[in-house]
């Protein structure tokens, strides 16, 4: 599986509006800051999926809550400036996802304590754990390539990001 197999092109966000609250120390593990940032990031990405034609508007809040409940069980900031917020939800009839970049990096309670610049949000049906695992594998296989991540973070537009995903070597 490749990222372009499940990432929704029209939901890609080249520059997240989410930011740490002004005046609040933006230490990566400050719980209040992290909670606020996580909600902003997840909502922005789920809304982008809705705007791209996925999920009814009435499902958006519940999907955001499901992803945040998953975050409460353990952060999906897996280090190396990458986070994979994800959840299963009945509104998804197949695995879909989207990608978002933060220009300044965001506190996300990452395992290595570093800010996160690349977010990949996954929403999958509840009865297809295999697809979910394949997508997660595709994310870590691709994102462990430092050259790829460097190129990704340099992208300024949705089109540039999509072209990079489509043209990535199969090993990525």
């Amino acid at each position: 599986m490749r990222l372009c197999n499940f990432i929704v092109r029209d939901a890609i966000t080249p520059s997240l509006a989410a930011s740490a609250p002004p005046g609040v120390p933006s230490t990566p593990r400050d719980p209040a800051t992290v909670k606020t940032v996580k909600e902003q990031v997840v909502r922005e990405m789920v809304v982008a999926l809705h705007a791209a034609g996925h999920f009814r508007v009435s499902d958006v809040d519940e999907i955001v809550r499901a992803v945040l409940r998953r975050e409460e069980l353990g952060t999906t900031g897996i280090g190396r400036h990458i986070a994979i917020p994800h959840s299963r939800h009945p509104a998804a009839d197949r695995l879909i996802g989207t990608l978002a970049l933060s220009r300044d990096g965001l506190p996300f309670d990452s395992l290595d304590g570093e800010p996160v610049y690349v977010f990949i949000l996954l929403v999958s049906p509840q009865d297809r754990p295999g697809d979910h695992l394949r997508a997660l594998e595709a994310v870590v296989r691709t994102m462990r390539n430092d050259d790829f991540v460097r190129q990704l973070r340099a992208c300024q537009t949705r089109e540039e990001i999509w072209a990079l995903l489509e043209n990535a070597a199969p090993g990525w």
Binding site: I78, L133, L136, E137, V140, R141
Partner: peptide, 12 residues
């Protein structure tokens, strides 16, 4: 390595 373990893709 969490990355390695996720990359194993070990199915049910």
């Amino acid at each position: 390595s969490l990355w390695d373990l996720i990359g194993l893709m070990a199915m049910p």
